[in-house]
Amino acid sequence: MFEIDALRLLVTVAETGSFTKAAVRLNYTQSAVSRRIATLEHQAGGPLFERLPRGVRLNPAGRTLHRHALEVLDRLSRARRELAVLQAGQGGLLHMGAFSTANISLVPTALRALQDARPDVEVVAVEGRTGTLMERLGDGALDLAVVSDYPSGLPSADGVTTSVLCQDDLCVALPSGHRLAGSGTLDLSELREEAWLQDAYGDRPTMLADACARAGFTPRKVIRIAEWTGKFGYVAAGLGVALVPSLAAWAVPDELVLCRLTDPGLRRTVHVALPAVPLPAALKLRDLLRDAVD
């Protein structure tokens, strides 16, 4: 209803007590001030100032509007300051997402460095699968995401760009008492009799299925366990083995052993995904993520 410039003029006239002085301060003509105040009074439904022999002062209606005008102008001023800080990458909210194993060490290391470098940036972190994170980036709900092409490729999203962050080898987790636990490096065919812990459902192809096919066998049994803690528990109990990204090595319990695999296809690519016009703080976090993998 009320224009911001008109509210600013109201405050200035109230401070100076004069249309003429307000005109000088705001670089208006005196007649322009009179016209704009008249328009404001028309919008307010009545006079806002008492006309005195020398100058003007707010009447009750004017004092009411003046109080609200001060609040509006203060909020706008704070908004400008916050936006300036946000656009400079020095503060504000940063919404980021990552898949589960990236949150074990990689992402926390980068976020710790961001906290030190940009203490006024408040990060809102979420965890999710790559497909969901890419959708949320495309919808504008995230400012950055750490995603991967595992288990079935990297999806695309409108307006989202990706850049490679690192290559992440997939190892196999065995119980420490397993007959192959001391091998260091294994050929996948040596595990053809094992049950596999896996969380992917449905008929879509997976990296494990493709690798087993290359090794000349089909897993004899697949146990569907979604959470890493559950997978580790099953492996520790000798109920199966599991592919574990090297990013997750830090979280592997002591009673398990990680062995490398000879198949070069058992590797995933980790990417940083950003919207078309990223926030400066998102670009800073991207750089810190790159530092964390160097």
Results as ranks from 00 to 15, higher is better:
Ile4Tyr: 12
Ile4Thr: 15
Ile4Trp: 11
Asp5Ser: 07
Thr12Asn: 09
Val13Asn: 00
Ala14Ser: 12
Gly17Leu: 02
Ser18Gln: 15
Thr20Leu: 05
Ala23Met: 11
Thr29Asn: 06
Thr29Asp: 14
Thr29Tyr: 04
Val33Phe: 08
Val33Met: 04
Arg35Thr: 13
Arg35Ile: 11
Ala38Asn: 13
Thr39Ile: 07
Gln43Ser: 15
Gly45Asn: 12
Gly46Asn: 00
Pro47Tyr: 01
Glu50Cys: 03
Arg51Lys: 15
Pro60Lys: 02
Gly62Trp: 07
Thr64Cys: 03
His66Met: 02
His66Cys: 09
His68Ala: 09
Leu70Val: 12
Leu70Lys: 13
Leu73Lys: 00
Asp74Glu: 15
Leu76His: 02
Arg81His: 13
Arg81Ile: 06
Val85Ile: 04
Leu86Pro: 08
Gln87Met: 15
Ala88Ile: 13
Gly91Ser: 14
Leu93Pro: 05
Leu93Gln: 06
Ser100Gln: 13
Ala102Phe: 03
Ile104Gly: 06
Ile104Trp: 15
Leu106Gly: 00
Leu106Ala: 00
Val107Arg: 06
Pro108Ala: 02
Pro108Gly: 02
Thr109Gln: 09
Thr109Asp: 07
Leu114His: 02
Asp116Lys: 12
Val121Arg: 02
Glu122Arg: 14
Glu122Ile: 10
Val123Trp: 06
Val123Phe: 05
Val123Met: 01
Val123Tyr: 07
Val124Trp: 08
Ala125Thr: 15
Val126Asn: 05
Thr130Pro: 14
Gly131Thr: 15
Gly131Leu: 11
Gly131Tyr: 10
Thr132Gly: 06
Glu135Tyr: 08
Ala141Lys: 09
Ala141Leu: 07
Leu142Ser: 03
Asp143Lys: 13
Leu144Met: 09
Ala145His: 07
Val147Lys: 03
Ser148His: 13
Gly153Met: 03
Leu154Lys: 02
Val160Met: 02
Leu165Glu: 11
Gln167Arg: 14
Gln167Pro: 00
Leu170Glu: 10
Cys171Thr: 14
Ala173Gln: 08
Leu174Ala: 15
Pro175Trp: 11
His178Trp: 12
Arg179Glu: 15
Ser183Cys: 09
Ser183His: 11
Gly184Asn: 05
Thr185Glu: 14
Arg192Thr: 07
Glu193Phe: 09
Trp196Ala: 03
Gln198Trp: 07
Asp199Asn: 08
Arg204His: 12
Pro205Trp: 14
Asp210Arg: 10
Ala213Tyr: 12
Ala215Asn: 03
Phe217Ile: 03
Pro219Phe: 01
Pro219Lys: 02
Ile223Pro: 00
Ile223His: 00
Ile225His: 05
Ile225Trp: 07
Ala226Thr: 01
Glu227Thr: 10
Gly230Trp: 07
Lys231Gln: 14
Lys231Glu: 13
Gly233Arg: 14
Tyr234Gly: 07
Ala237Lys: 09
Ala237Met: 07
Gly238Thr: 14
Leu239Lys: 09
Gly240Tyr: 08
Val241Met: 04
Val241Arg: 01
Ala242Lys: 03
Pro245Cys: 00
Ala248Pro: 04
Val252Gln: 04
Pro253Cys: 12
Val257Thr: 15
Arg260Met: 06
Arg260Lys: 11
Arg260Thr: 13
Leu266Asn: 00
Arg268Pro: 06
Ala273Trp: 03
Leu274Val: 07
Pro275Glu: 06
Ala276Lys: 12
Pro278Trp: 08
Leu279Phe: 12
Ala282Gly: 03
Ala282Gln: 01
Ala282Asp: 01
Leu283Gly: 11
Asp291Thr: 14
Ala292Gln: 01
